Simulated assay, not measured.
Amino acid sequence: MTESAVAPDPDVLLALRALSNPVRLQLISWLREPERHFPLEGAIADPAEVGVCVSHIQAKVGLAQSTVSAYMAELQRAGLVRATRVGKWTHYRRDEQRIAQLVAALGQTI
């Protein structure tokens, strides 16, 4: 890198890496409107407030629970979703503030 080159923000790189997988990108998209994409019957928490149970995400995407959990963990490490435990179940919802920061950072970077 030259002196004038600025190293990319590691948080932006982490988020872009998480979103580079088409399934993870689809998951974050579905979580934008959880009431539309996930069944409300059987939900033990409000999907908009608490998030969507990983078992509901797994049922919709049709992948193994371990795969879905790994994908959601990647999105969480990137700061794109937040996890909340309700009993023995983990619920995920988008971190809209972090996503807005990422979009702003991308606008300044590219």
Rank of each mutant, 00 (worst) to 15 (best):
S29T: 15
P39E: 10
A83W: 01
L14W: 00
L16S: 01
A64E: 14
A43C: 04
E96N: 08
T84L: 07
V23K: 00
T2M: 13
A83H: 05
Q58H: 04
A15C: 05
G107I: 05
R32Y: 12
R85A: 13
I44Q: 13
P39Y: 06
P10H: 05
Q76D: 15
L75K: 02
E3K: 09
L80V: 10
D46T: 11
F38N: 10
L13W: 00
L80E: 11
P34R: 01
Y92P: 10
N21W: 02
N21V: 06
V6T: 14
A78G: 07
L106T: 10
T109R: 15
D95L: 07
P34A: 07
C53L: 03
V68M: 08
V103C: 07
T109S: 13
V54C: 09
A45I: 02
Q108G: 14
P8H: 03
G87V: 04
N21C: 10
L27R: 00
A48S: 06
D11R: 14
D9C: 03
V6W: 03
L31K: 01
R85P: 10
L19T: 02
G79S: 04
G107N: 12
R93Y: 07
T2Y: 09
V86P: 08
G79R: 01
E41R: 15
V23F: 05
S69M: 06
P47W: 02
S66T: 15
R94F: 04
D95T: 09
V54D: 11
T2F: 06
V68Y: 07
E49W: 00
D11E: 08
H37G: 01
E33N: 12
W89I: 01
L19P: 00
S29Q: 11
V61R: 03
L75A: 12
R94H: 08
T109H: 05
A64G: 11
H91Q: 01
A7V: 15
R82P: 04
N21R: 04
G42Y: 04
I57D: 05
A104E: 11
I44D: 09
A45P: 12
L13P: 00
D95N: 15
Q101W: 06
L63S: 07
V54A: 14
G107V: 09
W30T: 02
W89G: 03
T109I: 04
H56N: 09
W30S: 09
L80H: 03
R93G: 05
W30D: 15
A100C: 02
I99W: 07
V81T: 14
